[in-house]
């Protein structure tokens, strides 16, 4: 059972690795310039020169998908990492120190969680007037909360362990205990949470771009590609299908990986 689970994790991780590899080496793999327009090859069906066909401006959809993946995945990873760090830090402080700082920060978290995440994101991204940075801030505002809550609850239970009392009696400072005993021991559950957040974040970022609140054209990004090509879906469906499929594929792969890792950790 455990071995089978391990094998599935390896397979999912390999799939995620291949996705990341193709996106990182987009510059080498892409057959065409993703931004070069070609008036002679408008809305061409998939062929050898354009594996996923071309869009309304004659741009290679395959190349745009690869470069768009760069934008989407890089932004997603950066945002997840940032929320992870900020949320974990806040959660650990709340859990370890308690008191008024804990009450204040957790009330803020409650308020943020009381709105649906996407609604907050759309409002904030709208106020910030588009751009990938704005979209990331918009999602980040609520994203740290899940990490903070998780880190806080784990810190609270770690705080009760006898080894923390021992460390205090050994004269270690709060900061040193947080760094050497608390943080490393909650890394595993938080890492699992980070994996499952990748899919959600990707949906969020692509969603905002689809609504025109994310990247600014002509930057390639999956959500905005779907949104642009949607207008002529009956003439050139490939321009919609290609970015949609990779979005779904990527989200499925990362969510599956996150679920498997979580299952594996629970089986421990």
């Amino acid at each position: 059972m455990r071995r089978q689970l391990k094998l599935r994790i390896l397979l999912a991780a390999a799939a995620a690795g291949i996705l990341l590899f193709t996106v990182i080496f987009a510059g080498v793999i892409a057959p065409n310039d993703p931004y070069a327009t070609n008036a002679l090859a408008i809305r061409k069906a998939p062929c050898a020169a354009y594996p996923f066909g071309t869009d309304n401006l004659g741009r290679c959809v395959f190349s745009r998908v690869l470069f768009g993946g760069r934008t989407t995945i890089a932004a997603t990873f950066f945002l997840v990492l940032l929320s992870f760090l900020a949320g974990t830090f806040i959660g650990m402080i709340c859990g370890y120190c308690g008191g008024w700082a804990d009450r204040l920060l957790m009330r803020i978290a409650d308020i943020l969680l009381s709105f649906p995440q996407m609604v907050v994101a759309i409002a904030v991204a709208g106020i910030l007037n588009g751009g990938m940075k704005g979209a990331m801030i918009a999602l980040g505002i609520t994203m740290w909360v899940s990490f903070a809550r998780l880190a806080r609850s784990h810190t609270l239970s770690i705080r009760q362990e006898a080894y923390i009392s021992s460390a205090i009696l050994a004269g270690k400072s709060g900061l040193s205990i947080i760094c050497t005993h608390v943080f490393p021991n909650l890394l595993a559950p938080l890492f699992t949470n980070a994996l499952t957040q990748i899919g959600t974040t990707m949906i969020g970022l692509s969603g905002l771009s689809f609504l025109g609140l994310g990247v600014i054209p002509p930057t390639a990004e999956w959500g905005s590609m779907i949104s642009e090509a949607r207008a002529y879906i009956q003439i050139a469906p490939w321009a919609v299908i290609a970015p949609s499929l990779v979005t779904i594929l990527t989200i499925v792969v990362f969510n599956y990986l996150g679920d498997l890792v979580m299952e594996y950790r629970e089986a421990l």
Partner: peptide, 9 residues
């Protein structure tokens, strides 16, 4: 402490 194992990280 009572729980010997948990008194070590």
């Amino acid at each position: 402490f009572q729980d010997a194992k948990s008194s070590f990280d």
